[in-house]
Design a protein around this nucleic acid. Structure first.
Lengths: 206, 206
DNA sequence: TGTTTATGACTGACCAGTCAGTTATAAATG
DNA sequence: CATTTATAACTGACTGGTCAGTCATAAACA
């Protein structure tokens, strides 16, 4: 009896929402614009998502579910730690420099203070998992003698830092006229610095 | 009605504006709230700043002018590069983990796409200067044989990364329930990793 | 007195969310 | 096959509230 089953509706809406949120931020994004970008009326949009906030939250979940498996290696046990770190940095940097992927972390950083639950979710499901994976890999590396005895928790944060700057540079600074970053070269430089810093023969210098 | 000495007016307004912008973001911040927090009426606020955007821009300029001299050492010439890097990381991390300082970069990241001129200004006057200082220090270090021949431009970005994650962790994640970062320990760990990665005897590993 | 500093009250635009009503179509009917 | 029916998918137009920015007026000073 009803009309066609628009199966990819949600994906269409997500795509439109990502565009508008990325360009306007959360607060300044208009549901009308998202609807228009998706080729829908605003009322139809509200048939799929109960509110602007819920739409953004769905977007966040979708992104996390799609990205985490790509970024975090499934087997952390027997692979050499340096190779794992190299792989994570490469993959994560490649992913998070895409505007549609950088969107969520960017808005969490900028507007998250108004949405503690969203930040908590993002922290728990994305940040903390990546952080934990890196920390574990470092600890394995130390245990195996591949790395020197470092502060794994904070070193993992340093690794994440290089990924985040790159994402910000690419999606925020570069569109505003900053000189462009070569993501692959940046990944190589970051890997070199990180592995150099973790290697057994190195000390803290100065 | 009273005609007080409104000399510290701007500072009062800045303080109030930082509070409100930090809590609400740019778009969702209300000028009424900023006025109230400054103990002023909104109309009076508009006697000092022509628009919300101009107020935020003034805030940005004030912050940059106040922070850059603290973070960037005046003499980069003869001091050993490792000491300079240690100093910059320590100072920058200490500064930028303060909510009122993190404010501007956070909003640039989240809502900057709507204000290209602001981002360009921030990039040119803050990001690019710190980046350039770090790059120069690394290049000097390489020239003097303190560091191995690295990609200075991208290595400088890695250094900035560790500072930025710490700021975000402290001002965004931590208020939402993430485990707290010990800023000093984080600075030490980052310095160790960076200097280890730059040191002459180290290679890229794996 | 005139000038400067202040404000309460106002306005015009904007926008999230709603709703009464419309359209498309699968299936039941003849 | 043509027609009716049931109903999910959809929408234009509306509302209630919010908020940046303005202005007429008042108080404090010189």
């Amino acid at each position: 009896m009803p009309r066609q089953i628009p199966d990819d509706r949600d994906e269409t809406i997500f795509r439109a929402a990502r565009e508008v949120f990325a360009a306007q931020g959360f607060a300044a994004a208009r549901m009308d614009d998202i609807a228009k970008a998706a080729g829908l009326s605003k009322a139809t949009l509200y048939l799929h998502f109960a509110s602007k906030e819920e739409l953004f939250f769905a977007l966040t979940q979708e992104l996390i579910d799609r990205m985490l498996p790509v970024v975090i290696p499934s087997d952390i046990g027997d692979v050499p730690a340096p190779a794992l770190i190299r792989q994570i940095i490469g993959t994560a940097m490649q992913q998070v420099t895409r505007p549609d992927v950088a969107l969520v972390p960017r808005l969490v950083i900028g507007e998250g203070n108004r949405f503690p639950d969203l930040v908590a979710y993002y922290q728990e499901h994305a940040v903390s998992r990546i952080h934990h994976a890196l920390q574990t890999i470092i600890e394995h590396g130390v245990a195996r003698g591949e790395f020197r005895a470092v502060d794994a928790r904070n070193s993992a944060r340093s690794i994440m830092g290089g990924i985040i700057v790159t994402a910000i540079w690419k999606t925020v600074l570069e569109p505003a006229g900053a000189d462009s970053v070569d993501v692959e070269a940046m990944a190589d430089a970051h890997v070199a610095m990180v592995l150099g810093g973790l290697q057994v023969e190195a000390g803290a210098g100065s």
